[in-house]
């Protein structure tokens, strides 16, 4: 495996991960694209050898590089391409609805969390009311 390609893959994974941790979908998409490229570079290097064409009119296996990783990389590029297009469509839709493409929090999660707080407040309130009643009973 070429050292240069290994470093390239590492750099792509690194920058991609950084972008993935952002809040905006547009950046996340770019991040995913970079990570996808990184994994494709990795896939390509798994064929071994460099600078050689895949099978061309030769029967000697040292004359050409393994064509299978190239085919695999091509397939995964096509798939990543399609899904990225879908993500862009999703971002576009989000922009139409909210004028923004920020990936928002889980609403229901917030609702549950708030419900717990409300329950606590109610419980505290009831406890306080009981205290007062007890005080009144005593006094």
């Amino acid at each position: 495996m070429s050292v240069l390609l290994a470093f390239l893959a590492a750099a792509l994974f690194g920058t991609g991960t950084f972008l993935l941790l952002q809040r905006r979908l547009s950046r996340i998409i770019i991040g995913i694209g970079l990570i996808g490229h990184g994994s494709n570079v990795l896939l390509l290097t798994s064929g071994g050898g460099r600078g050689l064409p895949p099978i061309i009119d030769s029967a000697d296996p040292t004359d050409f590089s393994d064509p299978l990783p190239q085919a695999l990389a091509l397939t995964s590029i096509v798939i990543t391409f399609g899904v990225t297009a879908f993500l862009f469509a999703l971002g576009y839709r989000s922009w139409k609805i909210t004028h923004d493409d920020i990936v928002e929090d889980d609403v229901e999660d917030r609702y549950i969390a708030r419900r717990v707080v409300v329950d606590q407040m109610v419980a505290e309130g009831e406890a306080a009311a009981r205290e007062i009643e007890l005080d009144e009973d005593r006094g």
């Binding site: 495996m1 995913i32 990184g38 896939l43 290097t45 798994s46 695999l72 993500l87 999703l90």
Partner: peptide, 26 residues
């Protein structure tokens, strides 16, 4: 909203999958 996170998470899993495939193949 939920579609965004679902797609992104699945894509990350797929990328891991390709990475695993690359390593297994080499």
């Amino acid at each position: 909203r939920s579609g965004m996170s679902y797609v992104v998470i699945s894509l990350i899993a797929s990328t891991f999958f390709i990475t695993a495939l690359a390593l297994v193949y080499s």
